[in-house]
Write a protein that binds this DNA or RNA. Sequence first.
RNA 1: GCGGAUAUGGUGAAGUGGUUAUCAUCUGAGGUUUCCAACCUUAUGUCGUGGGUUCGACUCCCGCUAUCCGCACCA
Length: 554
Amino acid sequence: MTGTGRLERLNGMLRRRGFLLPAFEIHGGAKGLYDFGPVGGRMRSRMNQRWLDHWLRLGNVVEVSCPTVTPYAVLEASGHVGEFSDFMTECTTCGEASRADTLLEEHHPNPDSLKRDELQSLLKVVNPPCHACNDPKWSDISAQNLMFNTTIGAGDSGRAGFLRPETAQGMFTSFNALHRHFRERLPFGAMQVGKGYRNEIAPRQGMIRLREFNMAELEYFIDPEAKLNDDLSPWDDRPMQLLAEGKEPSMMKLSDACKDGLIRHATVGRFIGLTYDFLVDVGIDPSRLRFRQHEKNEMAHYAMDCWDAEIEGSYGWVECVGIAHRGCYDLQSHEDATGKTLRARREFDEPRTTVIDAWTINGATAGPAFKALAGQVKTAVESLPKATNFPCQLTLPGGEVVEVSEEHVKPNQQTIKETGEWYIPHVIEPAFGIDRIIWHVIDHAYHEIEKNDEAYTLMRLQPSIAPVDYAVFPLFEKDGMDELAWKLHQQLCQTSGLVSMYDGSGSIGRRYARADEIGVPVCITIDHQSLEDSTVTVRDRDTGEQQRVPIDSL
RNA sequence: GCGGAUAUGGUGAAGUGGUUAUCAUCUGAGGUUUCCAACCUUAUGUCGUGGGUUCGACUCCCGCUAUCCGCACCA
């Protein structure tokens, strides 16, 4: 941060030039909602594309797209309904708002687990003092859900739902389709870029905390027992700033951090490396990038290990990527909630044979004898040792005592051969906050310099994400230079993936300045000589150097 | 959600209980100009929003919305 007011000037420029604008402004605007304007919109889609390309290079990752509108049951199963709701209560004396469960921490082993009614009545009974004014007078509690509620369908047939708080759940719920697509072979990944929604209590700091935001997530499914080919040596030449839990920050090689057990899983380590490469590739200054491991107590409800990529900018160090080892939590949760299986199979090296030589029930006699309890009796009998003598008494899980005699049982002798087993895959998830990354890319690219004793601003954006590739200028809009420039501009626009901008107004210096301000890497100028020999000058944004080249070589 | 500050052309600012609200810059048109924000002419464009006080409110008061800074909350 150089100089006071840089942030204000930067924000002013972003607005003026159409990078970022407060959304719906003529209606008064809305907190936490932003437009990407005519310049920023292009940059955002380039960033998204760049991100997809980056992960597609792994070769076993596919792109999907899931709805943002999500049924209640999905997010209930994932734990979001519970985790993303807080029950708030307000002190009627001083107006201080508090979380009801926090107030009751000393009066209940786990107030967070209580249902709304239970929490309400416990609050009434305990009546804890307000930590601001000490008065124990509380309003009724109200649910503060950080997800946007909606109703899917109209009227009585409407189902409760939410706008998704993350893109991940759709990829978990379609696990079986992904699994089939990859011929049932792990590891594989599914990813998507899309919108996520969180009804933040207090959106702040421009692009840093939004209510509707662009996210890009990869869910990488692995067999927790399989050997994975996660070679971290490619990153040995670029140590990274790592803040491991409970350790001092230090520059480390990923391979060492993994060897020392700071990074608890090699795939997490590899994704840290790939994330580093992506961020630096789109223009993040590597010296202002670090990876921080979550403390145990700040870890989200699903995570086993989590590393954030934090980027330093005008708002300090900000979390922009989370790389979480989610274990089997998500697939397990959806299995539990739906009764469907979300599993992969691994074959054993050698088939495993289990020899059973014990007892089971004789259905024909035990059925009529024990009726409804027969199932429980069967389980109990099958766990008895071979040496058991009948009749004998068994206590069932429900407390009933039954007497099992010889006629109810028969020997159970079989050999079971298993060639493999079904298991719930583990998930490693890199989750990117695209808006936050775009913000920091802009923040790092924005330079205020002096040029001929005048303040001058330029954006040193990477060409791969610059909103415009070429600016085409006629030196003067006359003598046919304007027609030639317009023709070249049209030609460039025909090329897939290229964006060109024509600018013919103002002095040539002014036009260079305008292009520099939005980070156009290359300006092409048509002058008198161009009319004669079909050459143009190509000017580099960062050095200002010009080269004369034939039009055809562009 | 609480407390404080703020809200005037696209951007940045000045100003007033009274008739036509000021300046710079940007933007458009025309002219001029042989490569880094030059110059001349000219044009377009503003008092966040709703209510109140008043003969009259951009100005004073209140609510709302938004922005910035703390606190709280949160991934």
